[in-house]
Computed example of a mutant assay.
Amino acid sequence: MRLLLITLLILQTGCAYYARDIRVQTEVGVHADISRYTAYIWSESITSLNDPSGKWQPPGFDITEDIRQLIDRELAKRGVRYSTTNPGLAVSFRLAANMQALELVKKPNSSQDMLIIKPDATLIVVLTDIASKNIIWISKAEAEIQQDIDAELVRKRLDYTITEMFKGLNNKSWF
C-alpha cells in the first residue's frame, strides 16, 4: 500500500513537470452551447515576437501549424470539424512572445526587490459564432519561455497547454 501511494505521488508530481509555469484562464459566453456546432473555419491567427536583442530561438518546427493541429484535435474530440461548407464557428488564435518581459523578485538574502528579465509567452484562442459575430469562448494561457529546450519539449508544453485550455469545452451546454 505504501509503495502504491509513493508511486501515485511521483506520477502526480512528475507527469507535467515541464508545465508547472503554465497558467490557463477560460471564459465562456452566457448562451454558449458547443453542441449546436458541427463545423468551423479558421479565422485570423497572429504571431508576434518582442525580441529586440535577438535572443529567441525558433523551436525547430512550425509552431503556428502545431497549434492549429492541436486545436483541430480538441475540437474534433467534441464533434466539431473543419469545413468551409456552412461553418458555425470561426476559430482564431494569437501567440505572443516577449523576450523583454520583466518580473519583480526578492534579492537573495535581502528584503529588497529587483527587476529581472523573464521572457514569457501568451496564447489566446477564440471561438466566435459566425452568425451573431459573438465570442462564445475564449481561453488564455501564459507561461515562461524556457531557454535551451528541444523541439519535443516545446511540443509537449503546447499539447499540455491546449488540452488544458479546452477542458471546459464539451458536447453539452455550458449552462
Rank of each mutant, 00 (worst) to 15 (best):
M1R: 08
R2E: 12
L4S: 10
L5Q: 09
L11T: 08
A16Y: 14
Y18F: 15
R23S: 11
R23Q: 13
R23N: 12
R23A: 10
V24D: 05
Q25G: 02
T26F: 00
E27S: 13
E27D: 15
V30A: 12
R36T: 03
S43C: 02
S45Y: 05
S45E: 10
S48L: 05
S48D: 11
L49N: 05
P52W: 04
G54T: 06
P58V: 07
G60E: 00
D62I: 07
T64W: 02
E65M: 08
E65Y: 04
I71A: 08
E74G: 00
L75P: 08
K77Y: 09
G79S: 06
G79R: 02
V80P: 03
S83M: 05
S83E: 06
T85H: 12
T85E: 14
N86F: 09
P87T: 07
P87M: 04
G88T: 04
V91S: 05
V91W: 04
S92W: 03
F93H: 13
L95W: 15
L95E: 04
A97R: 14
A97Y: 10
N98V: 08
N98M: 05
A101H: 11
L102T: 14
L102I: 11
E103G: 01
L104G: 01
L104T: 15
L104R: 15
V105G: 03
K106F: 13
P108A: 14
N109V: 07
S110P: 06
S110E: 05
S111K: 11
D113Y: 15
D113N: 15
L115M: 13
I116R: 02
I116F: 06
D120M: 13
D120G: 14
D120T: 15
A121C: 07
V125S: 05
V125H: 07
L127F: 12
T128L: 09
D129I: 02
I130D: 02
I130C: 03
A131Q: 12
S132N: 10
N134A: 13
N134I: 01
W137N: 06
S139M: 00
K140F: 01
E142V: 12
I145P: 07
Q146S: 11
Q147E: 13
D148A: 12
I149R: 09
D150C: 01
L158C: 04
D159H: 12
G168H: 04
L169H: 08
N170K: 10
N170I: 00
N170F: 03
K172R: 11
K172Y: 06
W174N: 12
